[in-house]
Nucleic acid binder design. Structure first.
Lengths: 316, 316
DNA sequence: CCAACTTCATAACAAAAAGCGATGTTAGGG
DNA sequence: CCCTAACATCGCTTTTTGTTATGAAGTTGG
């Protein structure tokens, strides 16, 4: 015999409040309404839920036992309400985010951590990939958003692109590196060192090649390639190798004091790091708040980087 | 915004069964019914619960999260159904039982333990008392049943009395007692020992006096009185005192091998041990099954006692 | 790529449930 | 004994739920 969960909740409220009238009040219903509900429930169960002939309605043992279950149901219902509220306000939700490895590891992961503190109901599914795979996953809806470098004219028709940070690259090395303490650096000095490269199919790898040629060097000795940011960093601090990384990544790594950027101008790719989402689909509230959080954080980061640059160039 | 718990249950079933149609089937409802329910729920929440444009209806993360809560509600609802079923069938319930101490300790407590195995959802509140207090507690509904010795004509108007066992008393002593190994016992021999008595306000105490005078003795030396069955028993096994106890109590104590009854006829009170309940009130199913269990057990006990008596008298 | 099939959404209507105010009934308290 | 608070009942309206019939959209297998 199926019981209506709502009836059990009503029973629970009556028992908890110690009376039918108070219970009805707490439920926002009229007294006759809950009276009949209880009456019907008793009829259906074939057993009294309340002692009859007692004015401050007193539950039977059976009624009390059912009311306990009803209370638990009521609490779960309230939990569901909270959940719905959090989801609707963007305090909770699920985000499947994919992006290019270096930038995800070097910049976005920090922001994920910060965002977690603000919206503790969020759950991230992170994955890595380059344009093609990210776009594919966006389209087949296994990804909610992608973070990658993109030229404005590269934006696919069915997607929206929100730029976060310009794609400015720098040459990076360990902080004790012989080149790090010098002022101007000559091409010949740089040619003396070999390079650490990201995976060969990454855009950053093409950037690396462009950057090296842009400063006139043609030395392409790769001592190490194919690693993630963590292994690149570990390798750099233990050798005198150089590498090319987004300035934002190096900037955030600087605080650890192991990696620095060299004061050499290199060619910048005409791409911007940004967020790619499916077009014409209303984002979940969670996704909206997260995206605006990222935009805010990146703007802040860019501001700090600009100040740092001015200082380095002697222009306070 | 209040959610309907039943809607959450429906959502849970759809997610669990992997489709709206199967979910509707499992719920015993038509497919359009649950379809509209979900549709309304989504409208109310302002967020989709299922990915649109997917034929085997696939829940969103939000839908899945709500469904989990719905499933827990559904399980609680089923638990409530089980509870109601158990109560209605007498497999579960609460029994407030009061009775005269010696009989409760010596006979009923054994049966409570046995009953517990048969109906594991039962919960006993046991208390002690004599006629007046038991009757009072029955009337003000702090007691569901009382167990006590009563004359048929003593039954109060507003109560029902169900006899369980005739009130037959015997003289009891420790098994190694000098009188225990003899055949016929003379009055003079009995007079040599002093007595252990139950509380002075108990009916058993009056029985004791009656029994002693019935065998002609006028020796009323009370070495010990006022204790419960446990202390009477402890006292008896360590002394040569005698006492008067209901035969049923002694019979059940015999199996431990420390207490025996003496083969002397004593006067029997014209009362029967039985169950007193409020009249004109339909007993809970639990109480009904328990009472019939007690009746069955006592009949069985009486039968065993009768056989024992025949054997003791040499009539197999 | 096109049937054929499944699966879900919608419409229209009937039935049940839940809501309410007015009012009757009863237990508890001076 | 009467009064009051608490609950039950009645009559009515509104809302919800359920059903069948039917249409639309996604899936599948060739």
């Amino acid at each position: 015999m199926k019981l209506d969960s709502e009836h059990l909740e009503i029973l629970a409220m009556i028992v908890e409040r110690g009376g039918l009238t108070e219970g009805a009040e707490a439920l926002g219903k009229s007294q006759p309404s809950v009276s009949r509900t209880i009456s019907n429930l008793e009829k259906r169960l074939g057993m009294p839920l309340f002692e009859l002939g007692r004015r401050p309605l007193q539950p039977t043992h059976f009624g009390r036992a059912l009311a306990e279950i009803g209370l638990r149901i009521h609490n779960l219902n309230k939990e569901a309400q909270r959940l719905a509220y959090h989801f609707s306000k963007g305090y909770a939700g699920h985000i499947r985010i994919g992006g290019t490895p270096i930038f995800m590891d070097g910049v976005i992961s920090h922001m994920l951590a910060d965002f977690q503190e603000r919206a503790d109901g969020v759950q991230f599914d992170q994955s890595y990939g380059y344009l093609d795979s990210l776009l594919g996953n966006l389209r087949n809806k296994t990804l909610d958003m992608a973070i990658l470098p993109l030229r404005d004219d590269q934006t696919p028709m069915d997607c929206d692109f929100r730029p976060l940070i310009p794609g400015r690259n720098v040459i990076a090395c360990r902080s004790g590196h012989p080149l790090a303490r010098k002022g101007p650096i000559t091409l010949k000095e740089i040619d003396a060192y070999s390079w650490v490269a990201p995976p060969a199919n990454s855009p950053l790898f093409r950037d690396l090649k462009g950057a090296i040629t842009s400063i006139g060097s043609e030395n392409f000795k790769f001592t190490f390639s194919g690693g993630t940011l963590a292994s690149i960093q570990s390798f750099l601090v233990r050798t005198d190798c150089l590498t090319v990384l987004p300035y934002s990544v190096v900037y955030l790594m600087k605080s650890a004091g192991q990696i620095v950027s060299l004061p050499i101008k290199v060619s910048h790719p005409d791409r911007k790091l940004g967020i790619l989402t499916r077009k014409g689909e209303d984002l979940t509230p969670m996704l909206k708040t997260f995206i605006s959080f990222l935009e805010e954080q990146c703007e802040n980061l860019e501001c700090r980087m600009a100040r740092e640059t001015r200082i380095a160039q002697g222009r306070p």
